[in-house]
Nucleic acid binder design. Structure first.
Lengths: 340, 340
DNA sequence: GTCACTCTTGCAATCCTTTGCAGCAACCGA
DNA sequence: TCGGTTGCTGCAAAGGATTGCAAGAGTGAC
């Protein structure tokens, strides 16, 4: 049998209430009693029973985290950030994975809601309406999405795209194509918008390509279209798609970046490991995870506004898949281009 | 306020005990009462309070999962498998990530133990002694490791290596090098052993290379050594290391598989996406996760032996990084070439 | 008609902790 | 010396579900 508060009380010669207070509100008991109780608790190896505590306080000391796909390294980073922040505050984390299935979100949310104090909902795919409908009484912080009335942590996707386009423009690119991600992704919308605004501002033609699944094969499928679009640079919805692009381009013998530049987004670890290494826009997902938990915890303790917003900066990381735009004349003759 | 069993009892006109029984031991109440209670429960949207139930039953309906690194796609697969099996049995899962830090394991284990009914310990890095020492009263199932007295789910690493070596031998390779993983990894030990046994049996020279961290840069670091070892094929501890090897070989302009063959282990999704695609030994981690949960659940219900073992089959997946061994004469030619 | 038995159901204790309230002592100022 | 604080401590009541025990109703056999 586990040691209970009663055992500690007996050992210290005080009542259960005093033990409880000595351990969780130490300033309420006299120093000498406090010391005696704490000594007894430590000696007996007492650990409060979380179920009993939760029963009366109504709190579980657990947080929930919902991500679209754990196998995506981006979300692995989020998970690690969330875990770290939660552990520091003595919270544990339940993780649920929707497998990119938007229709699974409301159900998971409801299931989680009962056993956690708050939920971090990362990159939700559900339409806003369903999201608010599934809205329980449990506090929720959104990540990578903004919905009116909800607190949210986002990254400045538009600014990341601005950096990307300006980088490409500076390299002489005049026609850039964007391989779009899921229509239901808020981040994708933000990226499209940032892209469009900057493209117009710097005088770059923007070609919009389909909506592709945010996976490797999405990039593979998009590569030929990108090549045929006449663009000299491709911006992908994320790094995994960019990796798919690179793969297909490589298979077709298309030189990157000599013939076409490729740019990803997220800066997952794999991006630095490809050949050539991927130029990408780094989004601080680990930090975003921490921030989301901090926000959630603040919400739980009733501090601050009920729908705070926090936006984290993005940063272009220039590696080897972006280069000077090919001379339009040379485009038809690759050999001439190379020998330049 | 949430709806409690009391509300359901009042609505159905029965006592709390009857409600409790109607919902969790339906065969104990009369069909008509049962129907009335269940209808009331559904109508009111009743969900039992897990804390209250846990308080009296001593069960949490939670499982714990400890993995070395969530960012490793291999473990992401394990997580998904565990989640799926747990959800099917109405358990939730706490996940802890040790960041490949063996010394963090005992602490995490202890912290988890209090809030779960059982733990799946995946690829533990701690020495056996520490593991058993940290051994709590909480049931634990090991994955990718066997320790006397513990139930475990493993994969047949040795047989996977047999398939790998026989494949290489059939391609004419006579000297193969192994890029070893962490010394503390049980899987690594099994792989070394399987490799050695088969190499001897088929008459292949085996060169053992260091112990490298199971990461991309481990492979990068090992590549030059592998090349210098005179082997015509390299087997890597896992796919990520193999990817590192490929990267460094590519950077040095070494042709794969013409000059040297590369073989990974695990079959992570990325392996199929490289150029050339990686030949590897697939280990069914998703299924292993499911199996581990099944075993844990059986343990919790007191069925079967206290230390059951289950071993899953591995399967060589031949892709494009393994090929016919280069002609030894050609090998020296090329070496002379490079030393010029 | 009565006894023994089964089938349902309700009562009430229990799990462990937190917390409002009250009691008690000591201490301060008047 | 006494009333009023202040500071600690203990009592006891939750909190929501499970479960051993017992009571009541119904059934079948003699």
């Amino acid at each position: 049998m586990a040691v209970t508060i009663k055992d500690v009380a007996a050992a210290a010669g005080v009542s259960q209430s005093t033990v409880s207070r000595a351990l969780s509100m130490p300033e309420l008991v006299s120093p000498v009693t406090r010391a005696r109780v704490q000594a007894a608790a430590r000696r007996l190896g007492y650990e409060p029973n979380r179920a009993a505590r939760g029963l009366i306080t109504g709190r579980t000391a657990n947080l929930g985290l919902v991500v679209p796909d754990l196998a995506n390294p981006l979300f692995a980073a989020v998970v690690k950030g969330v875990q770290a922040a939660a552990r520091a505050a003595d919270y544990s984390v339940f993780i649920a994975d929707t497998d990119e299935d938007a229709s699974a979100e409301p159900g998971l949310l409801r299931a989680l809601a009962k056993q956690v104090d708050g939920i971090v909902l990362c990159s939700p795919r559900s339409p806003d309406a369903e999201l608010t409908e599934a809205g329980t009484d449990t506090p929720v912080v959104l990540m990578n999405r903004q919905v009116a009335g909800y607190p949210a942590v986002t990254v400045d996707n538009a600014d990341g795209m601005r950096q990307a386009v300006e980088h490409l423009a500076a390299l002489g690119h005049r026609r850039v194509c964007y391989v779009a991600g899921p229509r239901s992704s808020w981040s994708n919308g933000q990226r499209e918008q940032g892209l469009r605004a900057t493209a117009e501002a710097v005088g770059v033609d923007l070609v919009h390509l389909g909506h592709f699944p945010p996976r490797f094969d999405g990039g593979v499928a998009a590569a030929d279209l990108a090549l045929a679009s006449g663009a000299s640079a491709v911006v992908a919805y994320n790094d995994i798609v960019a990796l798919g692009l690179l793969s297909r381009l490589g298979a077709r013998g298309v030189a990157v970046p000599d013939r076409i530049s490729v740019l990803g987004c997220d800066d997952i670890p794999m991006s630095a490991m490809t050949h050539p290494a991927l130029t990408t826009v780094a989004v601080p997902q680990h930090e975003a995870g921490r921030a989301a938990v901090a926000m959630l915890l603040a919400l739980l303790s009733d501090a601050g506004p009920t729908a705070p917003q926090r936006e984290l900066a993005t940063q272009l990381v220039v590696r080897a898949t972006t280069g000077v735009a090919p001379d339009p004349a040379a485009l038809t003759d690759r050999r001439a281009d190379r020998s330049r």
